[in-house]
């Protein structure tokens, strides 16, 4: 039980999930984004649409993640706080699905805010944003924000996730996602009511 989250993530990535060729993955996502840009002709709307798609992925993907990490004897313990959930997400979930481990920086007065720094991003692999697109406000990997929001919502955390910067925009040196906890959802039977 004393294994670190990093090791659990590594092991999950090695043995629990099927791999897909990076080119197929990156090109599929790329053509999806380009098609959306053609369809909507508005970068803000494309961002929204990507987020929505990600959300729909997230609400399903979370169960995949949980099913696979709880089936080992050294499973991940239940997270009790937002902070713990962020650690597990970055070190196990990102590792398992994308083979990257973003850096986590918790901030905010109640530690209810989190900055994820993605040192590499497989979605970006072959991408160069034309200046017009970058200036238009497209967050190329916005689908990730949606996945994060959807997945956390299913474990009772309502969050807001958004890109702060992206290396694809020539002015930025880092890829940062900000996740802000809005509230913990309590959906139980009201026990205190008499």
């Amino acid at each position: 039980m004393s294994r670190s989250l990093e090791e659990i993530g590594q092991e999950a990535w090695k043995s629990k999930v099927e791999k897909v060729n990076l080119e197929v993955f990156a090109f599929t996502y790329g053509s999806l984004v380009v098609q959306l840009i053609k369809d909507y002709e508005d970068y803000e709307q494309v961002n929204n649409k990507l987020e929505k798609m990600g959300y729909n992925i997230g609400i399903r993907l979370i169960d995949d993640f949980l099913a696979r990490t709880s089936s080992t004897s050294n499973n991940v313990n239940r997270c009790e706080t937002f902070e713990e959930a962020m650690e597990v997400m970055a070190k196990v979930a990102f590792q398992m699905f994308l083979n990257i481990q973003p850096k986590v920086a918790i901030s905010g007065a109640n530690s209810d805010e989190c900055l994820l720094e993605l040192e590499t991003n497989p979605l970006n692999e072959f991408v160069e944003l034309p200046p017009a697109v970058a200036e238009g406000g497209l967050w190329y990997s916005n689908v990730l924000c949606g996945v994060i929001r959807g997945a956390l919502e299913m474990i009772q955390m309502e969050v807001k996730a958004e890109f702060v910067s992206d290396v694809l925009r020539s002015s930025d040196n880092t890829t940062l996602i900000r996740i802000k906890l809005i509230k913990i959802l309590d959906e139980e039977v009201p026990i205190e009511e008499d």
Binding site: F82, E83, N110, I155, Q156, K183, L185, E187, E188
Partner: peptide
């Protein structure tokens, strides 16, 4: 530990689903 987290609003009360 959890109680403290609950009062700060960064953890859920026991009793909600999954606990």
């Amino acid at each position: 530990k959890k109680n403290a987290a609950i009062s700060r609003g960064v953890s859920r009360r026991s009793g909600s689903s999954g606990t």
